[in-house]
Nucleic acid binder design. Structure first.
Lengths: 220, 220
DNA sequence: TGTACATCAGTGAACGCGCGTTCACTGATGTAC
DNA sequence: TGTACATCAGTGAACGCGCGTTCACTGATGTAC
């Protein structure tokens, strides 16, 4: 006789034990994530689709999430954490602040390209589609902005960058890498150069300036 | 007695004359545009909503557009032309290629900020939401990229820029200004510096480089 | 050890909605004679 | 100038769909005695 408690998850999940009412919550989030990766379309993340992927009826979702928006919010949270982690890992063991910045940006680029729909939700949603309060307080972390600010500050302290507001500089860097990621995502058929190449050129442009030194810093 | 042919447009439009079957088409596009500006949400651009705004029944739309996607495509076309015109006007009468580039970018920024939903459709849509074939052939013009390429080429010829592929450089510039516009649109509550200020700093960064000259071009 | 009861994770059916699209049609406008 | 007819811009009603959400419920799990 088959063990009844095995989570077969294919057609009908086993009922949660009294204690772990939160088990379903985790499964819902995982299913939503998988669905998002599979379809690459946030519109397919309907309550019904998620419920069916988990093997549960739609009303069950409401046991764990107030409404669809709340579910999407939770999914956002996961991705934000993933992106932050990727950016944090990228700079581990590297001392040069300039190189740290380059690597963080590269990690950001890769995250966006490998999780386009996640990135789209996080960074490209219509503001009113984003769950309430997600932007204001969370956004600075979401973008992984704080470590970048630290790197910029370190670069200034070392005399690598001219003196400037590190936070403003970090925001500007965010804008630029976001431009690259979001355009590559939205226009996949446009003949952009390979992402790594574009990134390298962006980096060089920023470091050296676009204009030939003769004009940038005229010799007296 | 009131003239019967007056287009009262409020409740029931007068029937088009035999010749100008295309009259309705123009009215549909205008209404779609107005609706988009008013609601700032492409989702409200349903066949029904547009028809009702024009004062016509939904099936009438199909007399002029194959389907909803086709209508959205036509709306895109309008906006693309607007954006191109704004960028073209911006550089009129200016000789310095660097200044031309700066002004074109500024016009792009302003267009995006003043028509966020138009910009969103043009540049931030999920690729499969964009009407077929709009991207590939049209996109280079849509972004107003060709004039930018010319300016970059001129800058190179004058020795202002180091020798490089002008088209690739233009694509990179596009990415950067797009990053600014799209992030400002998507995160209106995030404490970015004022757009003009960010733009000025971006421009300076590009021209002079982010890194202090000492490191960028070490003196022998 | 055995029974009555409370808990609460998950169900099944239904609601009302707005949507894109279709179809057979109507009736004013214009044309041929 | 007058009448029969063709054209075709626009209509009205309906289709089938998937959606978010609600409600009263069921029945296995755990607890009290």
């Amino acid at each position: 006789m088959p063990p009844a408690a095995v989570d077969d998850a294919q057609k009908r999940r086993s009922r949660a034990r009294r204690g772990d009412g939160d088990r379903l919550r985790g499964e819902i989030l995982a299913a939503a994530d998988a669905l998002l990766i599979a379809t690459n379309d946030i519109a397919t993340l309907s309550i019904r689709a998620v419920a069916s992927a988990v093997g549960v009826t739609p009303p069950s979702i409401y046991l764990h999430f107030a409404d669809r928006n709340d579910l999407l919010f939770a999914v956002c949270e996961r991705h934000a954490i993933q992106l932050e982690a990727a950016m944090a890992d990228a700079a581990v063991g590297v001392d040069d602040p300039l190189e740290r910045l380059r690597l963080r940006g590269l990690a950001y680029l890769h995250y966006g390209l490998h999780h386009p729909e996640h990135y789209r939700i996080l960074m490209m949603s219509r503001p009113d589609d984003t769950p309430d309060r997600f932007i204001d307080e969370r956004m600075a972390d979401v973008a992984g902005l704080l470590p970048v600010v630290e790197d910029v500050r370190a670069a200034i302290d070392l005399g690598l960058f001219p003196d400037q507001d590190p936070l403003d500089a970090a925001k500007l860097l965010w804008m630029m890498i976001h431009g690259m990621v979001s355009l590559l995502i939205s226009k996949p058929d446009f003949p952009f150069p390979p992402p790594e190449e574009s990134y390298q050129r962006l980096y060089e442009m920023l470091v050296a300036g676009l204009v030939t030194p003769a004009r940038a810093a005229p010799d007296p």
